[in-house]
């Protein structure tokens, strides 16, 4: 049952991603409406998939489910889905579809990457039941997702700026939100990402101290993480003070997101050294 549901969800997300990008290309309301309907169907099966995995086939629950590789990916995608739903009802509704067309392929990518780990028994080895650990995981994932939203915003800003400088056609420009609103969104998202990742870092350090009696073990991932946080602090400071123009800020944002994604997603799976790894 789980396998069938997973394949259905994946197929729905792949088709929705294609239709989302195609609707942006054609600016045809009919494709947009079809993509929206498919997205609702995809989200429904996605939620059902989690329920089956965490409550029917295992007794892990969502947070403990994140201790497995597939569960971690699922939680990442779930957080993004929740934030997309939140954005729809927030002040960013006018820009919602532009962000969603880029976010849906990302969810699809996460699901595709998770496929080899569907039956993986590898888990995070820290299972001490420290009270801060589930909070640390949720906060860190939410921080990642807000950071992802700022990444989408930065990509949109660079595309919009490129189109405006190119001066070729207004047709594509009209499909995107205004340059000013994208920049406002970026600042909004980066502020929240910075705050949540900072909390994630502090709560992680407390968990490490509680379990290993040290806040810092000096593993490569910890070093890259602290370095990234410092860069992010500078980015936040520069961007919010208007000290860095949005073009450079967006380029930095994209670069930093790729680095952090590497750390959070791939390093956890392939560099198993340290307590973040799935062993």
């Amino acid at each position: 049952m789980f396998d069938v549901l997973f394949i259905t969800t994946l197929v729905l997300f792949v088709v929705t991603s294609v239709l989302c990008i195609y609707s942006l290309h054609t600016d045809d309301d009919r494709h947009k409406n079809r993509a929206r309907l498919l997205l609702i169907a995809a989200i429904a099966t996605f939620v059902a998939l989690g329920a089956v995995r965490f409550y029917l086939t295992t007794d892990d629950g969502v947070v403990r489910g994140a201790f497995t590789i597939w569960g971690y990916f699922y939680l990442l995608a779930l957080a993004l889905v929740v934030l997309l739903v939140y954005l729809y009802f927030s002040r960013w509704r006018a820009q919602w579809w532009s962000f969603t067309t880029l976010a849906v392929p990302f969810i699809t990518l996460v699901l595709i990457i998770s496929t080899p780990f569907l039956d993986s028994a590898r888990r995070i080895t820290v299972e001490t039941g420290h009270w801060l650990l589930p909070l640390h995981i949720v906060i860190a994932i939410l921080g990642e997702i807000f950071f992802f939203l700022s990444f989408i915003g930065s990509v949109l800003y660079l595309v919009m700026e490129w189109q405006l400088k190119k001066k070729a056609s207004m047709r594509f420009i009209f499909r995107l939100p205004t340059l000013e609103s994208i920049e406002k969104f970026n600042r909004w998202a980066i502020a929240r990402a910075f705050l949540l990742l900072s909390f994630g870092l502090v709560s992680g350090a407390f968990v490490a101290y509680g379990v290993f009696a040290t806040m810092f073990q000096g593993s490569p991932k910890e070093i890259i993480l602290y370095a990234s946080w410092t860069v992010m602090l500078s980015l936040f400071w520069l961007r919010h003070g208007g000290r860095l123009d949005p073009h450079r800020a967006s380029q930095l944002n994209v670069l930093l997101f790729v680095v952090l994604m590497f750390i959070f997603m791939f390093a956890n799976i392939y560099i198993t050294m340290g307590f973040h790894g799935f062993k």
């Binding site: 405006l164 207004m170 047709r171 205004t178 340059l179």
Partner: peptide
């Protein structure tokens, strides 16, 4: 009827895509 043709209107629309 989409995509404006007058120079003045295009200039205004471009401004509306830059500023909120």
């Amino acid at each position: 009827s989409k995509n404006p043709l007058s120079i003045a209107y295009i200039a205004t629309e471009l401004a509306r895509k830059i500023f909120d």
